[in-house]
């Protein structure tokens, strides 16, 4: 996986905040972006809860699964 935050298209403020949010999950920002957008993306087992929340947030943002 890439480790370059710029690859996710985020600005510095978001990258700094994301680093705090992801602290302890074992995920980098690009990992998180990949896990959010792709349910099939491989994530460490310890990051399972984070990946599930990321996917839910992404799906809600896309308007998926909202009757």
């Amino acid at each position: 996986m890439t480790t370059d935050p710029a690859a996710t298209g985020t600005d510095a403020a978001l990258a700094r905040w994301a680093a705090r949010v992801l602290d302890g999950t074992g995920l980098t920002l690009p990992d998180a972006a990949a896990a959010a957008a792709d349910p099939a993306a491989a994530v460490p087992a310890a990051a399972g809860r984070a990946a599930q929340a990321l996917r839910d947030g992404w799906a809600a943002a896309k308007g998926e699964d909202i009757p």
Binding site: T8, T10, L14, W17, A18, V21, L22, T25, A32, A33, A36, A37, R49, A50, A53, L54, R55, D56, G57, W58, A60, A61
Partner: peptide, 8 residues
């Protein structure tokens, strides 16, 4: 984490 995905 949910919010992070929405921001991304």
């Amino acid at each position: 984490w949910y919010d992070l995905a929405q921001r991304l």
